[in-house]
Write a protein that binds this DNA or RNA. Sequence first.
RNA 1: GGUUCCGUGGUGUAGCGGUUAUCACGUCUGCCUGUCACGCAGAAGAUCGCGAGUUCGAUUCUCGUCGGAACCGCCA
Length: 580
Amino acid sequence: MKKIQNVTLSKKNVGETVELYGWVAKKRNLGGLLFIDLRDRSGIVQLVVRPEDAVYEMAETVRNEYVLKVEGTVLERESKNDKLATGEIEVQVEGLTILNTSLELPFEVSEDTTALEDTRLKYRYLDLRRTRLQEIMRLRHKIALATRNFLDKEGFLEIETPILCKSTPEGARDYLVPSRVNDGKFYALPQSPQIFKQLLMVGGMEKYFQIAKCFRDEDLRADRQPEFTQIDIEMSFVEEDDVMDVAERLVASVFKEAKGIEVSLPLRRMKYTDAINLYGSDKPDLRFDMPIEEISSIFTNTEIAFLKAVLEENGMINAIVAKNCADKYSRKEIDKLTDYVKTYRAGGLAYLKLEEEMTGSIAKLLSDKEKSEIISALQLEKNDMVFIISGKKEIVKTSLGALRLKLGRDLELIDKTKYEMLWVVDFPSFEYSEEEGRFVACHHPFTSPKDEDVNKLISDPGNCYSKAYDIVINGYEAGGGSIRIHNQEVQNKMFEALGLKDEEIKEKFGFFVDALKYGTPPHGGLAFGLDRLTMLLAETENIRDVIAFPKTASASCLMSEAPNIVAEKQLEELHISLKK
RNA sequence: GGUUCCGUGGUGUAGCGGUUAUCACGUCUGCCUGUCACGCAGAAGAUCGCGAGUUCGAUUCUCGUCGGAACCGCCA
């Protein structure tokens, strides 16, 4: 007799004696005839116990989530259940051991449980017994396994990098770890293995990868956790195309191995500037189109005061068109959309409807010429709805981009069975930080500029673009990376452009900058968000669904109640005193 | 740091300035030999998150607080 996984049982096993282990998912006592659904990781099989069976009395006492060992004979069922993989058979129980009992549960361990997420998070170990989460954990495992297999075949080495690191104040906030043996000093948990993976290239490892835990002490979102996992990759002697080639073949391999989805390569590429202009996002969801249209020029001689003011202040007027939707939007709903775009700092939302005539918030103020220009520029047809936002470029693009996504969802324009992947390339090297009053690195200060922009780093930083690329799937940034600077002169120019003084460079990146002076090969890489890839393949928008023990939006764990207050003695040992 | 929403038996919900606090699932007891959302009958189970205020009276209104969710900022 051998231990058997439930779902491996089928009609071909009829007559065999088997040994099963699992949990009681459900008991149905028909008054004599007793059915128990036994669940293990593989699924459910029905046990049957009859009054004349020796184990009947014991079987009557089992409750939900009791842990059982069962010996029995596989029988063909009198009435089949096509909802179950094992629905053609059942197991007649001959030997029964209750391996453990269970308290009454805080919620039902079933797919249609009504328990809300916070309840499920508090008892995560119970939630993990549900098929949905078991499937996701299996999927996540498959993704990691496919990644390792693929990268191994491509000649990559998996190398671990430190978790206790030096704090680098650029970028996200670090999680800090006090050092007991170094009074007053702190380690930082890595935001990513960025510096170490580049040092591995300096160290001659040529092709590295790691499935690496990363930590960022920033505010959370539905797709962001304080600790998350990256598939981190770095390669020597490569240019952009080489990295993108390996990366997209990796994605294709993962989609194929983990879920049987064919991805056709090469992926399309879109310049950052185009992504922003057309979709108002550096991670456009291309499962539907609805591009943002620039219509400023139509309003050169406008009578509309607020639009005139926008244009005088170097702002722009952009629109998106919801085809054949004019009758779907009442005043009330447009007000809701207006509130929505205001959260993205848009000043307001103007709209036009092409009905018998053109109507809408600004229709009365438009000249006939302007109306006809709008119709031809936007190729409007009857019953089309136009949403218009005006103002500063950045705000117009992001708010219309957000509105586009909302309309796409609300109007069900998104084909959820589809995966739309693309590379967004040629990111700007710098962005101007109002807060700091200077240009800051868009990616990080070791990102290589485009060859043709090297000479503009100092004279015209706002027009420099970098060898950086993000892979975007269904509107999620699934991964991103860049070619790094390996040339000392270029690196110095970059620091100069960022306004970093020598002492600052030494203090912030000292050992790393030194290392780059000792024969650094040309190199580059990227990192995928393993959590986000899993979300995409699991078809969930909640990152907590794909992490075994996730944290809430306030970065705490409802189950273990981390973080917690620690004993005064612990703090003393760490040379820490807390502000009262 | 900001905005919005939520908190009622174990779970999920209804509700209201004065109720015996609604319903479903679950639990327990009894009956029931082919169920698989088993069925039938009955029972137990609630500090209405916590604190203060308004009020004759607060689960309900107000403020605070704690917890949860989404978004903006933030996330090189």
